[in-house]
Structure formats: structure tokens, C-alpha cells
């Protein structure tokens, strides 16, 4: 299970690999959190439920990241981890439920890094591989 950032002049690509589907999304969330702030400084005392659905697994991946971006803004929170409770991409109606852990933004204590505006369909990929899954998309910074 790993994530890596892909080079782009203005923005950044996020590419994630994992054996299992829940791990894929959890790792994607970690990749996103790590771009936004120094996650080791973020506590885990508050939790927020996340629930997304989409017509394809690719779009579920983008929806999931965009939902996290929206929740950060709505709740004024930085997140540290994500636990996926269920994810289903077997039908034409992909969906995911999970829990995000983090805390309210404290400008004095937290080290903010980059604001992510949105996850896009650019470079979007969601594939089943011999060892699991790989997914990627471009994040607009």
C-alpha cells in the first residue's frame, strides 16, 4: 500500500496502489492529507463520517477526494487518517462509507502546507492489477 505524487507544472498528480479496495481509498486519503498539512501534528480526537457514491469506480475515487476537500472546509478541520468501513464497486452504483479522524485547524499548532482546490478527472485511472488496485488523478492546487 503506497501513494506517490506525480509531477505536473502547476498542480500535482496523486497515484495510489493497494492490495485491497478499502486500503486504496485510505491511502489516497493519506496522500491528500499529507499535501494539505503536516499530518503528524494533527490529533485524532474528532471524527467525521464520509459517504460518497458515483456511477463508476473512477468517479467514486474523485468523489471521495472531493468530499474530503469539502469536509475540511466545512468543518475547519485537518484530517490525519481515514477508515473505510465499506466500499462497493461491483455494480453501476459504486459507493463508500468511512470515518475521517482529525481536529479543528489551529493555526498556531498545525503546519499548513498546500490548499487543494479539487480532485479532477484529468489523468484519471482506476484499474484492477495482478496485485490489487491502482488509482490516480490530478489534484488542482
Amino acid at each position: 500500500m503506497s501513494f506517490k505524487y506525480l509531477e505536473h507544472e502547476a498542480d500535482v498528480g496523486l497515484c495510489v496502489e493497494a492490495e485491497k479496495l478499502p486500503e486504496l481509498f485510505e491511502e489516497a486519503a493519506r496522500g491528500l492529507f499529507s499535501l494539505v498539512c503536516e499530518i503528524k501534528e494533527v490529533g485524532k480526537k474528532d471524527t467525521v463520517k464520509i459517504s460518497v457514491e458515483a456511477d463508476t469506480p473512477e468517479h467514486l475515487f474523485v468523489e471521495f477526494l472531493n468530499e474530503i476537500i469539502s469536509l475540511m472546509g466545512l468543518k475547519d478541520m485537518f484530517f490525519r487518517s481515514c477508515r473505510v468501513e465499506s466500499v462497493d464497486i461491483s455494480s453501476g452504483h459504486s459507493n463508500l462509507k468511512g470515518i475521517l479522524c482529525g481536529e479543528r485547524i489551529d493555526a498556531k499548532r498545525h503546519k499548513a502546507k498546500t490548499e487543494v482546490k479539487a480532485a479532477t478527472y484529468s489523468g484519471l485511472k482506476f484499474e484492477k492489477t495482478a496485485s490489487g488496485y491502482v488509482a490516480q488523478c490530478l489534484l488542482d492546487l
Binding site: V62, E63, S70, A118, T120, Y121, S122, L124
Partner: peptide, 26 residues
């Protein structure tokens, strides 16, 4: 940011609905 995110979904559905062929799904 949120207007863009919201309408990305709306326009993805519209692209299918109106049968628009695209070289890049973004």
C-alpha cells in the same frame, strides 16, 4: 472550488446524456 466540483459531476452526466465524444474526460 465547490462550484467547480459540483458542476464537474453535472457536466459528466450531461456529456453522456447528449452523447458528446471527448478526447479527455476532464
Amino acid at each position: 472550488h465547490q462550484i467547480g466540483t459540483d458542476y464537474l459531476k453535472v457536466l459528466a452526466q450531461a456529456t453522456r446524456k447528449y452523447g458528446i465524444e471527448l478526447p479527455d474526460q476532464e
